[in-house]
Amino acid sequence: MHVHILLLLFALNLQAQTALFNSGNIRIHDQGQIGFHTNLINNASFDQNLGLAGFYGNNSITISGAFIPIFYDTEISNDKGVLLDTGVSTVNNTNFIIGNFITPRPQQDLYYNFMEDAFYVGENGSSKIAGYAAVNNQQNFTFPIGDDEQLRPLILNSNDTNTFAKCAYYFESAASPPSFPQIFDLSKKPRTIGEISSTEFWHLEGTIPSTVSISWNARSNIAAITGDAMNIIPVGWSITGRTWVNLGVTALSGDLAMGFLTSDSFIPNDYAIITFASVATPKEILTLDNYLVTPNSDGINDWLYIPELELSNDDTLRIYDRNGLLVYSENNYTNGFTGFANSDNIIVNRKIGLPSGVYFYLIAMKDLNLNYQGFLYLKR
């Protein structure tokens, strides 16, 4: 026979909230319910539960103690929230009505844990996990996480079952996060990455190759990193490389005010945090140097080679001597300058090649709307 328990616990002292102290004599049986209106101090095993454990009322509730309680169904309807000073696990359903399960972000070993078949309903901006959520033995999972104000989920799709994965959202600058134990230099990045968000980031742990889907909204201030939503990319701080890495994009939709993206596959534990960045524009990526041309058939600098021109499909190169006389021109340059003039201008001793000295170049990459100028030294 199933035992039905309905236990309603109220704080009677308005100055100092009371607590339920579990020393091992509580169990929720099938179809049973226990309603917490006060703190729970769990100092004994509390893991053979069925039925519903609910957290209610208008006063903040704290769960603490030496043992992690494991509930079957869990419900929260408390606008002040439930603070976890010890972890909580749930076996079946979590029903978010109002109020957050709150974990102190500096204590990353405290989290609300969804076990193998656990799921949730009702998550929203005022009811979610404000801090760390974890999952056991699930391959794909959407973490119902955020901060005090907003729901900012991360969708994890893994190649295999995650024995354990964990995630939290931070509405903080990665350059100086007050509640994360590390700072991240936003300038440590390859040239192909443009501006990196200083507004928000996610901390994700996991060992299985996975893709993630994350979204942005007006508060994300995406306009600070790009003027075109199609240039948004996910980036992660490489733990071994100590630099930002483009995690790749397989899906992207939205505008500067709202949208989402899905990354390429990566191993979460390779990266300390994840956030948004922009793809660097060609103008940010490309810098042209000064060049040396030594056409002596030794295989080194025998012709003018400008590798950046391979990024353009509509370029022009013009070379002038120090007197401003055009000596060489080519559209869609293909490494043709070897020290000989090809212009129609009058060139002294054209057949033996241009004399050694300084020459100036002008390059236009018309399709990229880029223009460059510099000099080259021709040495025979």
Rank of each mutant, 00 (worst) to 15 (best):
K189N: 11
P190D: 09
P190M: 05
P190F: 07
P190H: 06
P190E: 06
R191I: 09
R191M: 12
T192N: 12
T192W: 11
T192R: 11
T192Q: 13
I193Q: 09
G194F: 13
G194M: 15
G194P: 14
G194S: 14
G194Y: 12
E195Y: 08
E195L: 12
E195K: 14
I196L: 09
S197M: 09
S197A: 13
S197Q: 07
S198R: 10
S198I: 07
T199K: 06
T199Q: 12
T199I: 12
E200W: 02
E200Q: 14
F201W: 03
F201H: 03
W202R: 11
H203Y: 04
H203S: 00
L204S: 05
L204V: 11
L204Y: 08
E205A: 07
E205G: 00
E205H: 06
E205M: 08
E205W: 07
G206R: 01
G206D: 07
G206E: 07
G206S: 06
G206C: 08
G206Y: 03
G206W: 03
G206L: 07
T207P: 01
T207M: 13
T207L: 15
I208R: 10
I208C: 06
I208Q: 14
I208V: 15
I208D: 03
P209C: 08
P209E: 11
P209H: 10
P209I: 08
P209G: 06
P209V: 09
S210R: 09
S210C: 11
S210P: 10
S210Y: 08
S210D: 05
T211W: 01
V212A: 02
V212K: 01
V212P: 00
S213N: 11
S213P: 01
I214H: 00
I214D: 02
I214S: 00
I214F: 00
I214P: 00
I214N: 00
S215T: 13
S215M: 12
W216Q: 05
W216C: 02
W216E: 06
W216I: 05
W216P: 06
N217F: 04
A218E: 14
A218G: 07
A218F: 08
A218I: 12
A218L: 13
R219V: 12
R219I: 12
R219K: 10
R219W: 13
N221M: 13
N221G: 06
N221A: 15
I222M: 15
I222N: 04
A223G: 04
A223F: 09
A224G: 08
A224H: 04
I225W: 01
T226W: 01
T226C: 04
T226M: 04
T226K: 01
T226A: 03
G227I: 09
G227F: 01
G227Q: 11
D228F: 03
D228K: 11
A229K: 03
A229H: 03
A229L: 05
M230D: 11
M230C: 00
N231M: 15
N231T: 15
N231I: 05
N231Q: 15
N231F: 07
N231E: 15
N231A: 15
I232T: 10
I232K: 05
I232Q: 06
I233P: 02
I233D: 03
I233L: 07
P234N: 03
V235K: 08
V235E: 09
V235L: 09
G236I: 00
G236N: 00
G236S: 00
G236L: 01
